Simulated assay, not measured.
Amino acid sequence: MTTTIPKFAHLLIPLEDVVKATHNFANDNIIGRGGLGHVYKGQLQRSGELIKISALRLDRKHGGGVVEFWTEVSMLSDLKHPNIVSIVGFCDEQHEKIIVTTYEAKNGSLKEHLSNPNLTWTQRLKICVGVARALSYLHYDEGRDYGVIHLNINSSTILLDENWEPKLSGFKVSIKQSLNRMDRVILSEPIGTIGYMDPEIEKTKGVTHKSDVYAFGVVLFEILCGRRAYIKTGENKFLAGLAKYHYENETIPDIIHPHLKNQMSKNQISLSSLRKYSKTAYSCLKEDRAHRPHMLSIADELQKAFEKALNFKPRPENFVSLFFCILFFSLGLLTLFPIVFF
């Protein structure tokens, strides 16, 4: 039996096609396990073209999940942005509910690469800019008469394609809100992932688009510190509080991930880029929502930090020795002093 909403009928995909695409939901094709169910990779024939897909298969064993399913379908059917996952369609038959999107996570999720020593500072900045642009589009796109509050921003819902471009996913609890009411509180139970949740939710009994800003600020510090927002054991379980403490005490370098700090030192990364980045990340974590910036401003500031990193031209490590090497070479005397300058 199907419960498909008519307005989404054009996105329907036959169950047999999804079964074939995923090799009957083979375990070898599982690429993720989330709150709604398993995600499978596969290849689906659509309009004569074979495309790579991800298929989120709703786990109905424990009931529930139907509202979240339709929320995600509804959101993705309306959203078109290079930094947001693209829906292919969905299946709704024989008690199966499956959301099919293009396969975007060739490099997995951001969560898997927070401490990756090979992920450079400029690559990290590029990821941040992409996510900020996606959130700006959700909150303010002029092509719609409503904004979208994502409410599930974390390093697991940010996927990375083969070029390390971010693709925002995880719209199962997202909320639509009229553009002229984006600053109004929407009454809600606490929504989100531990470590990323807006502390104002408890005070106001609801959420706004600034709740996304807070969560994104936590992600920015995850990227800088190379660790998760919440760690179950040990000291400093919550990254947000730790990051705010070090920023306010001007000791941010103390919590930068060692691999990244070493990379910055070796490559003489522009400190002004780091300063602008950390200032922007900190502003997102302001206790009072009114003091947090809007996503358009955040995207602009991160773009500036990215450009500073790209355009930084380091001074030669030993400028004086290099100068004299060139001078002596021009005088034909370099071979007489091979040890002094090298």
Rank of each mutant, 00 (worst) to 15 (best):
L239C: 04
L239E: 02
L242C: 04
K244L: 13
K244P: 03
Y245I: 00
H246C: 08
Y247T: 01
E248I: 01
E248M: 04
E250D: 15
E250H: 15
I252D: 05
I252H: 06
I252M: 13
I252P: 06
P253H: 07
I255R: 05
I256T: 13
I256L: 06
P258F: 15
H259L: 13
L260W: 11
L260K: 06
L260V: 15
K261L: 06
N262I: 07
N262A: 12
Q263M: 09
M264G: 12
M264R: 07
S265M: 15
S265W: 11
K266R: 14
N267I: 07
N267D: 12
N267K: 14
N267A: 12
I269L: 13
I269S: 07
I269C: 09
I269Y: 07
L271D: 08
S272G: 09
S273Q: 07
S273A: 12
L274Q: 05
Y277C: 01
Y277K: 02
S278K: 00
S278Q: 02
K279C: 08
T280V: 04
T280W: 02
A281S: 09
A281V: 04
Y282M: 09
Y282W: 10
S283G: 07
S283A: 13
C284V: 01
E287Y: 09
E287D: 07
E287K: 05
D288S: 09
D288H: 08
A290H: 05
A290G: 14
A290K: 09
A290Q: 09
